[in-house]
């Protein structure tokens, strides 16, 4: 399966490794930030909702 890379095997493989590592790192970082802000926003919105309903009950 592995193609014969000849004498440049180290160069080719390291290029692929570097690229994939960098792209994956960026992707994972972005996904983590995304998940973090998403849950934080949900929390804030839920808190706001709860407050609004509590206030509504008190008024009613």
């Amino acid at each position: 399966m592995m193609p014969d890379l000849g004498k440049y095997a180290v160069e080719v493989l390291s290029a692929y490794a570097v690229t994939i590592a960098l792209m994956l790192a960026l992707l994972l970082l972005s996904l983590r930030q995304s998940a973090k802000t998403r849950s934080a926003l949900r929390e804030v919105e839920a808190a706001r909702q709860a407050k609004a309903t509590a206030k509504g009950k008190a008024d009613g």
Binding site: S30, Q33, A40, L41, V44
Partner: peptide, 15 residues
């Protein structure tokens, strides 16, 4: 993905 994150972060700040 990143723009969505930024939009959410901005909304959170506003809230």
């Amino acid at each position: 993905i990143r723009t969505r994150t930024e939009v959410r972060a901005r909304r959170m700040k506003a809230l």
